[in-house]
């Protein structure tokens, strides 16, 4: 259906730590999906999100959501942020310091739904500190409030800028669940910026890979990061924290996204080009595990 399509074609010159980068994103996407924008720092991910939101003007650009044109620099169309019906979650939370958690969320809601603030607060587990101001909250609590607030206005589009980067693993997983739930319940088109591979695999329906300001690939996580002709029954993503050499083989110590530690054997050709700190995927075909219920 024509109404379901998102067309984006924007260009902006960025100055980053790596020098001048020309951000040029051209994509046709389907509404209702959860997209993860993936790439290194400085690749232009945040800028892209801000352009979609209407907070940053591109040098040249065209954005069409369904049958509404949001931006057309050539014909001078620029729908203001306020009218795009988006929920934006900033990397630094941007909670309103003069309002309590409850007031922050109520401020987000449109007039007729004031009672729903309480419901949202319960859903996100914010009840015990709903009367506190942001100054008295921990980083994880603030991030939860920021996410709840972004969802409170029932947006058609959800834009999340590295929303979970500063959290511990447990809170991170909890909030990932919330993002998934929110998306599944309302089929809100979601753009989430992340450079964490585990998160990509967990959340993305489709990945937009940004390299040096251009989209180098769009696809499902498995398509982008794994060789297609390999079928692994078990796949684990994680970081290599130690590479130990023994006589004829290597022992890799890996920490997974769930903070579990694995030790895996590997051979010379596996560890070529591998360094401590690298992100890897471990998968296995013939696999007979022993399962124990705790």
């Amino acid at each position: 259906m024509e109404n379901d399509i998102i067309e984006i074609n924007v260009e902006k010159e960025l100055v980053s730590a790596k020098g001048r980068i020309n951000l040029h994103v051209k994509a046709t996407l389907k509404q209702g999906e959860l997209f993860v924008v993936f790439g290194d720092s400085g690749a232009g991910k945040t800028t892209l999100l801000r352009i979609i939101a209407g907070l940053t003007m591109p040098d040249k650009g065209y954005i069409k959501m369904g049958n509404r044109v949001w931006l057309n620099t050539e014909s001078g169309i620029n729908l203001p942020v306020q009218h795009r019906n988006i929920g934006f979650m900033f990397q630094e939370y941007a909670l309103f310091p003069n309002m309590t958690v409850f007031e922050n969320i109520r401020f987000a809601q449109k007039k007729k739904e004031k009672h729903a603030a309480g419901e949202l607060i319960e859903k996100f587990g914010l009840s015990e500190f709903s009367n506190r101001k942001p100054g008295k909250l921990s980083g994880g609590q603030m991030q939860r409030v920021a996410l709840a607030r972004a969802l409170a206005c029932k947006p058609d589009f959800l834009l999340l800028d590295e929303p979970l980067s500063a959290l511990d693993a447990r809170t991170r997983t909890l909030l990932q669940d919330e993002v998934l739930k929110a998306h599944d319940n309302h089929l809100t088109t979601t753009f989430l910026v992340s450079h964490d591979l585990t998160e990509v695999f967990r959340l993305a329906q489709r990945v937009l890979k940004l390299e040096n300001g251009q989209i180098s690939a769009i696809g499902r996580p498995e398509e982008l990061f794994i060789d297609n002709h390999i079928s692994g029954k078990v796949q684990i993503t994680g970081n290599v924290v130690k590479i130990e050499k023994f006589d004829t083989f290597y022992l890799l110590t890996i920490v997974t996204g769930m903070n579990q530690i694995l030790k895996v054997t590997a051979f010379q050709n596996d560890v070529e080009n591998l360094h401590e700190g690298d992100q890897i995927i471990v998968f296995s075909k013939a696999f007979n595990p022993i399962i124990l219920k705790v």
Binding site: L55, V81, N85, F90, F96, A108, C153
Partner: peptide, 11 residues
């Protein structure tokens, strides 16, 4: 970002 956050909420 505080100002921008308010704009994103439609204010």
């Amino acid at each position: 970002q505080i100002r921008e956050a308010s704009y994103t909420l439609g204010k």
